Amino acid sequence: MDLALLRTFVAVHRAGSFTRAAALLGLSQPAVTSQIRTLERRLGRPLFVRRARGVTPTAVGDELAHKAAPHLDALLEITETEWDPDAGLRTLHLAGPPEFLTLRVLPALTPLIARGQMLRTALPGDAQDALAGLAAGHHDLVVTTARPRGGLFSTEVLCDEEHVLVAAPNWASLVDRAALRDTGPDALAGVPVVEVHESLPLVSRYWAEVFDTPPVVTASAVVPDLRAVLEYTAAGGGLAVLPRYLCEEALRTGRVVALLDPPVPPLRSYFLAARAGTLAHPHLAPAHALLLRAAAHW
């Protein structure tokens, strides 16, 4: 059996698309199609069912992928780690939310710089953009708040972040905290809201999980960066819902005040994703392991 055909087959199986697999392998889409047809002829069985968007593996295709993928990954690990002395110097391409990369991920990766690791980061518009870039081979690792689905990705839970309802001290002094705890967000009437988007993603999640009601407010200020939301809020902009890791120092120094301490605070999970079969790459494996170790203390 030609290993190149099996490698292409596994890439298509994981990607769910000839086009995405071609991009990952550095081949043309017709070349990938030709290789899969050749493999199907040799086996005498169809491996994929062509759909309007992508392909779906047949039962035979799933069985072959289950048997072949671990061995191909092991061969890749051998060739990458033992026979390519310069592989560790390949540039690591990383993507994720700008605030989390800035305050958590990038500081954790600095030990790799002493080993000569090159690093490039991207700040996609949202989690789906980041995962699409990972699937297309533009990124090696992605930190995301959306759990990746499907066999194309290898995913680990990185950490959970707690969300905190905060306000500038001048606005906090006007809020009846007991009423907020006992009767809900009506106690916040008149306090301006600062958010990252008009749809109020953080406020809506907090209101739903803590108050069991949707917000009936609009943002007085929208700034598409959580660090800017923090600074604007602390300067007197109003109230905001922020990750605790981001506003922890501001809380400690009194620049902002936590308005509520719910028994079960809202949490959001971060995931660390790579393309399946790539974690053996020497430029990727150390970064992946380093982030998982660091996240245990976040």
Rank of each mutant, 00 (worst) to 15 (best):
E161A: 02
A228S: 14
N170L: 06
R227P: 02
S173Y: 00
A273D: 13
P224V: 14
W171S: 02
A273G: 10
C159H: 13
P265K: 12
T253V: 15
V217Y: 08
S173G: 13
A172R: 03
L202A: 15
D176M: 02
H163P: 00
L158R: 11
A250G: 05
T218V: 15
R227T: 07
S173Q: 09
Y245N: 12
V203F: 04
E161F: 00
A235G: 08
H283F: 02
L226T: 14
E209P: 00
V157A: 12
V203S: 13
A178N: 14
V264A: 13
A258H: 07
P262G: 09
S204Y: 01
T218L: 13
R252I: 01
D160A: 10
A179T: 12
L267T: 11
A168D: 10
S199T: 15
A187V: 04
A219T: 13
L284W: 03
F211K: 04
T253P: 05
V216E: 15
L188H: 05
A250D: 11
L230M: 11
V203M: 15
E162D: 08
P262Q: 14
A234T: 08
V217P: 01
R227C: 03
D160P: 05
F211R: 04
P192H: 01
L284V: 15
R177V: 07
A276I: 03
R255P: 07
E162Y: 00
A258L: 06
E162G: 01
L272D: 10
D186N: 12
C247I: 05
L188F: 01
L165V: 04
V196N: 00
L174H: 02
V257R: 11
G190D: 03
P282T: 03
L242F: 08
V194D: 03
L158T: 09
L272K: 06
E162T: 15
E249D: 12
F211Q: 02
Y206N: 05
P215S: 09
P262A: 12
L246V: 07
R275H: 11
L260I: 13
L226F: 00
A167Y: 00
G190W: 01
A179S: 14
A285V: 08
H197V: 09
W207H: 14
V164C: 12
A168P: 01
L267R: 15
L202P: 00
G237K: 03
N170Y: 00
E195M: 06
G277D: 05
P282M: 02
T278G: 05
E195F: 07
E248D: 14
A273K: 08
A240L: 04
R244S: 04
A168L: 01
N170A: 11
E249G: 06
E249Q: 14
F211L: 04
L200M: 08
S269K: 15
V264C: 01
Y270C: 02
L202H: 13
P185Q: 13
V175W: 09
Y245V: 10
